[in-house]
């Protein structure tokens, strides 16, 4: 995968998370009673959604990380050229 494609993937994954996080806030703001419902195993939506956000973050991070393994060295930039000599 090339660098622009990686950037695009990062944006897609970021947007997915942003939607989920936004959804969590919107439900809390406008439909707080929904958070008290217990959709599965007697555990309420607030806990499911909260855990879901944490697990999603971990899964998205892994997807992003593994997308580099096929082209491992390609994306690594030249950091010595762009960094600055501050001590001069």
């Amino acid at each position: 995968m090339s660098a622009p494609l990686h950037n695009r993937l990062a944006m897609v994954l970021f947007s997915i998370y942003l939607l989920l996080y936004g959804g969590f806030i919107v439900i809390n703001l406008f439909m707080p009673d929904l958070m008290e419902k217990t959709p599965y195993a007697g555990v309420n939506l607030a806990i499911w959604y909260g855990f879901g956000l944490i697990f999603t973050a971990i899964i998205l991070a892994f997807i992003y990380g593994f997308s580099f393994t096929s082209t491992s060295k390609q994306a690594s930039g030249d950091d010595s050229a762009s960094s600055q000599e501050v001590s001069k």
């Binding site: 994954l13 970021f14 998370y17 996080y21 909260g50 956000l53 944490i54 998205l60 991070a61 930039g77």
Partner: peptide, 19 residues
């Protein structure tokens, strides 16, 4: 809610800021 918010911030760190 703090736990959720504090972790969410890392998504910004990973996808936008880190590299």
């Amino acid at each position: 809610l703090y736990s959720i918010g504090y972790l969410a911030g890392w998504i910004v760190a990973l996808f936008i800021v880190a590299e």
